[in-house]
């Protein structure tokens, strides 16, 4: 990977340069990221894959501003995260980033609708009504918008989470094993929804997953092993991904 040109920078929603993350100290230290440089293009759906301990979740957390790098730099748009204090990082997450976690995505005391608009209400903003309608109709929750999370199925909960991630028109959405707790049918529905968000709503999504079926929804797959990028693949299919993973884990 070479350093991006300035033309590339504007195309890139988020990127890291020479990202190193070391956990612990001395003999006990673990090199989770061993110097990674990668950019995620706007309007693209990227999947990050790799065996357990390959650093894929760490990479996601560091680009998303949830964790900081030991060295190197991470950017959302043109903003370098390392220079930001907690408040600025928080506001950046609020305004520029969307999140979909594996579980516990929703606040139990708020209903689906309130959960969707949460980042906006935290900011004291009103949603863009046309955009909101578009997102919500894509979620397909119908009359369950006023229901609380404990009255929704797992798949519905994750779709609400996805809608929340999209509602503030973020620069980029990060998803960490979004279908991890779902059965394959509802998992497929969720991934289909994410795919549509990229195709029809022009969103940018970066997703960590270990499921080749999920990765097949992406435009591009990046493979990590031992904290390094070992390969990437455009227009993946489940079988191609599976084969590649087998060689990585071998």
């Amino acid at each position: 990977m070479t350093a991006p040109t300035s033309a590339e920078k504007t195309r890139v929603a988020a990127r890291v340069e020479d990202a190193v993350k070391i956990y612990g100290e001395g003999d006990a230290s673990v090199r989770a990221l061993a110097g990674i440089s990668v950019g995620f293009d706007r309007g693209q759906f990227t999947a990050i894959m790799g065996p357990s301990g390959s650093g894929k979740s760490t990479l996601l957390h560091c680009i998303a501003g949830l964790d900081n790098l030991t060295s190197g730099s991470a950017y959302i748009g043109d903003t370098e995260l390392g220079s930001l204090n907690d408040k600025a990082l928080t506001l950046l997450r609020r305004d520029k980033v969307g999140f979909i976690f594996q579980a516990f995505n929703l606040i139990p005391t708020l209903n689906a609708e309130e959960n969707i608009v949460l980042p906006l209400s935290i900011a004291g903003d009103k949603p863009d009504q046309a955009w909101y309608d578009q997102v919500v109709s894509a979620v397909g929750l119908g009359d369950r918008l006023k229901h609380r999370p404990n009255e929704l199925s797992g798949g519905q909960q994750q779709r609400v989470a996805a809608a929340r991630a999209l509602v503030s028109k973020p620069e980029i959405v990060f998803a960490d094993e979004p279908s991890g707790n779902l059965d394959s049918q509802t998992g497929a529905e969720l991934l289909g929804f994410m795919r549509e968000a990229v195709d029809n709503l022009d969103q940018t999504i970066v997703m960590v997953t270990h499921n080749p079926l999920d990765a097949a929804y992406a435009d591009k797959v990046i493979f990590l092993a031992d904290g390094r990028i070992v390969d990437d693949m455009d227009d993946p299919t489940a079988n191609k991904v599976l084969d590649r993973l087998k060689t990585l884990e071998a």
Partner: peptide, 16 residues
């Protein structure tokens, strides 16, 4: 803890 973590992740400031 998790709930507060989620709120912080989606942009709630410490002050909030």
């Amino acid at each position: 803890t998790r709930e507060i973590g989620l709120l912080r992740a989606v942009g709630m400031t410490r002050r909030q």
